[in-house]
Every structure is written in C-alpha cells, then in structure tokens.
C-alpha cells in the first residue's frame, strides 16, 4: 500500500499506449472539499428555509425535515454528483479534479457510493485525520474511501496547445543556408537537448533579464560546440537568436522559407 509516493500514475492500454495521469495532492483536494462543504451548507440552508414553512403546520415536522435534509444532502451530495458528472462534484470541477477508477476505467456506481460512504471513516477521529494520513502515505494519494472503492483522484491542469508559430516561423534562418550542417545538427542532437532549447524559447518571457542572457549563452555555446557553423552564418546573431535558429532547424526540418 505504501512506498514511493507517485505524483503521476501511468496506465498501459491494450493498444500499447502508455499515458500518465497527474494525481491530485492533499492541498488541492482539501480546497475542493471545502468548496463542497460550502455548497452542502448552502443547499441545506436553502432547504431549511423551505422547511421553515412546515413549522407553521408543525414545528416537529419542520425539525425532522431539517435533520433528514442535512443528512440526505451531506451523505448524498458526493455520490449523486460524482455519478451524474462522471467523477466530479462542484468543488472538484472548480479545481479540475476527477475521480477515476484506479485502472483508468470509468467509475461504476458502486465505486462512487463506497468511496463516499467511507468519508465517515476517513473523517475519524476528527478533521479528516485518518483520510489525510492515508492520502499522505499511500502511493497513489488515496484516502481510505479511495482504497476501498479502488479509485484515484486525478488533476487535469489547464491545457494549452503550444503555439510554435510565434517563436519559430516567419523569420530568416541563416543556419538553413547550410543544409549539410543542419542535417548533422539534427542527427547529433538528442530529443532531450531539443526540448531544452524549445522550452527555453517558449518560457523566455518568464525568465529574468540576466538569467535569460545567461541561459541562452549556455545553450548557444552548447549547440555551437556540437556543430560549428561558418562565421557568415552566425555573424551578428545574439545567443537567443542562435538558439531560436537551432530549434527551427530541429523542429522544422523542411526549409519552407527557402522554397
């Protein structure tokens, strides 16, 4: 049950594809939980407001209604919403969390019910202590309810498709005037090195000015050492421009500008 705690959970599909899901940590899960608690309290308040009208007929019936309403909402909120919204409550949806089967399959109704019923045990002896400890020590960050139901909670961070056009296209690349060197550069550069260059370019605006100069100086030095280009190809290029041209060579093997 315990061991190295994972931040990502890999699933191997029968098609031979491996994908990983980012497991939700205690902080983001707590935030979703508190949001859900606020929603439960709001729903209960609203129901009690209507139940108050029953007090005109019978205060006893109004109290019974309130007790049962709170009980039904607090017990039923989780499994009704997680079932209806495919593993999400309002809090989970807000924080981009989703309950999934531990094998990557969709949730079954019984899993949803069991993980929510076991909240009572997770809450023991108070303040979700058992569930919190379980979350911290289990490999897949599972509370007891998740263990019993064989579920995990995954976090899908906001996703943006990379816009390479802005950083790589439409600019003259002097390195591409030497196709044989470009071919050698592509051959000698590992995917990891290529990604470092690309990541640096994508994130360049988020780096401080001095760090940015230093980073691109190191990177250009590295690529210059790997495949030296003639002086006329690199004349007047800043380190950052050099790295941009290298990334362009690596990720745009066909020189569309020269065609």
């Amino acid at each position: 049950m315990t061991g190295q705690i994972l931040s990502r959970f890999s699933i191997h599909t029968p098609e031979g594809v491996t994908f990983s899901l980012r497991l939700a940590g205690p902080v983001v899960r707590s935030l979703a939980f508190f949001t859900d608690m606020a929603v439960i309290l709001t729903i209960t308040k609203i129901i009690n407001l209507f139940g108050g009208f029953l007090g005109v007929i019978s205060p006893d019936v109004a109290t019974a209604f309130s007790v049962l309403a709170y009980f039904a909402v607090s017990m039923g909120y989780g499994f009704i919403l997680e079932w209806a919204l495919n593993g999400q409550t309002l809090g989970k949806r807000l924080f981009r969390l989703r309950v999934m089967d531990a094998q990557g399959l969709a949730l079954s109704f019984s899993q949803v019910v069991i993980r929510n019923l076991l909240r009572l045990v997770d809450a023991l002896p108070g303040l979700y202590l058992l569930g919190g400890i379980s979350l911290l020590i289990t490999r897949k960050s599972q509370r007891l309810g998740d263990l019993a139901a064989s579920t995990i909670v995954v976090w899908s961070p906001p996703m943006a498709q990379p816009d390479l056009a802005q950083i790589l296209s439409g600019k003259f690349n002097s390195l591409k005037e030497h196709p044989h060197l470009c071919a050698r550069l592509r051959q000698k550069t590992s995917p990891a090195e290529a990604d470092i260059a690309l990541s640096a370019l994508i994130r360049r605006e988020t780096i401080g000015p001095s760090e940015r100069v230093e980073l691109f100086s190191v990177l250009s030095g590295h690529f210059k050492e790997k495949i030296p280009f003639p002086e006329e190809a690199v004349f007047g290029l800043s380190d950052e421009q050099y790295v941009r041209n290298v990334a362009d060579v690596l990720f745009h093997p066909v020189n569309r500008l020269s065609r």
Partner: peptide
Amino acid sequence: SSEKNLKIYLESLVGRAFAEIH
C-alpha cells in the same frame, strides 16, 4: 519530444477516451 503541454493535453485526451471506451 518532451514538450510538456502537448503531452499533457494528449494524455488527458487519451485517458478520458480510454475510460469511456472501457
């Protein structure tokens, strides 16, 4: 490539589709 955003995006798509199929 380890281009993170694209990989995460595709993993999310494949993961969601995998769950729906199974």
